[in-house]
């Protein structure tokens, strides 16, 4: 009886009794969630357009952040470094198309998946070879002062991250729904063969989508890099994107966002209110357990289009 009380009653009583603290927890969760969504978004884009689960997305985040920091260390102003990094990510997309995708047309998905694992090693090695492997601080002048609204403590940096995430998602949504290229991207995602038959060139589309994923990776890299420094472990946040994808569905952009929010908020709430019952550190594994439950009951995710047997 006491156990039931501790698990199912007490946490909710706590939430209700100190609702300002609860609101702070939720907001902190939402803000982390947005950052997860940013990483997950890169996966979804590439998976949708080329049916490839891009294992190297996490390393692309790291690579983009490393390039940005590296350029800034060499004395480039922020805007120039940003443009330079965007160009590097576009060049990377061309290289991936030319070296990998073009040669693996119509191969099994697992072959493509393996090749992205290879790509992640190459990118990681390349990034550390060119820019060095020590931890770097990334400061592009985002303010990070805490302030209070209605008794709730907020951080300017988190708000900035959330806002830029929202803008990015908005821009992508407009791009996907109202432009010729965006429509073509969605068409390719639905049916490669039919897209080819109406004259949509797959190679161009792949380059575009890998470039876009690279830029999304850059935004994620900036946010995470500014928060926790640019270092190898940055590529491991890709692991946190996996439960987000399982929750939201691999093929859904809104799913990546909602999935990210659920994971972000869920793990914060779980940590604060249920954590003590497990001896703490729930935050590290909560997302995976949640993903496991989803896999059992709704394998296509909340918004997924179909069950994924490709990964």
């Amino acid at each position: 009886m006491e156990i039931l009380n501790a698990f199912f009653v007490a946490p909710f009583v706590d939430m209700g009794s100190d609702y300002i603290f609860f609101a702070e927890v939720v907001i902190a969760g939402v803000l982390t969630g947005v950052m997860y969504s940013l990483v997950a978004l890169g996966f979804v884009l590439i998976f949708k357009a080329s049916g490839v689960f891009n294992f190297s997305q996490g390393v692309m985040v790291l690579f983009a952040a490393l390039t940005l920091v590296g350029l800034m260390e060499h004395g480039a102003p922020v805007w120039l470094a940003l443009i330079g990094t965007v160009l590097v990510m576009i060049a990377l997309a061309f290289a991936v198309e030319w070296v990998m995708l073009r040669r693996l047309v119509n191969q099994e998905e697992i072959v493509l998946f393996m090749s992205t694992i290879g790509l992640s090693f190459v990118l990681q090695g390349l990034g550390e070879m060119v820019w060095g492997s020590n931890v770097k601080a990334l400061d592009i002048g985002i303010p990070s002062e805490p302030f209070e609204v209605g008794g709730i403590l907020l951080n300017e940096f988190d708000l900035f991250a959330a806002a830029s995430g929202a803008v990015l998602v908005g821009v992508l949504a407009v791009f996907f729904h109202y432009t010729r290229i965006g429509r073509a991207l969605r068409a390719v995602a639905d049916d490669h063969q039919a897209a080819l038959s109406v004259g949509i060139p797959l190679r161009t589309i792949w380059i575009i989508v890998w470039s876009v994923a690279g830029m999304v990776g850059l935004v994620a890299g900036i946010m995470w890099g500014a928060k926790s420094g640019v270092q190898f472990s940055l590529s491991l946040i890709a692991l946190k994107a996996l439960p987000v994808l399982i929750l939201g569905g691999f093929t859904s952009v809104p799913g990546a966002i909602v999935g990210g929010l659920i994971i972000g908020v869920g793990e914060k709430i779980a940590e604060i209110y249920w954590g003590p019952l497990f001896g703490g550190a729930i935050e590290n594994w909560f997302a995976y357990v949640l993903a496991l439950v989803f896999l059992l009951f709704r394998p296509q995710g909340l918004f997924g289009e179909k069950i994924i047997e490709r990964v």
Binding site: R186, A187, A194, S197, I200
Partner: peptide
């Protein structure tokens, strides 16, 4: 020269009008 493949390869998640518009890609 354009092919209409057998088995009605519509872009399922696009609306009918979006489907038609993809035809004007080139």
């Amino acid at each position: 020269v354009i092919q209409v493949m057998e088995g009605r390869h519509c872009f399922e998640h696009l609306t009918i009008e979006e489907n038609l518009l993809t035809g004007s890609y080139t």
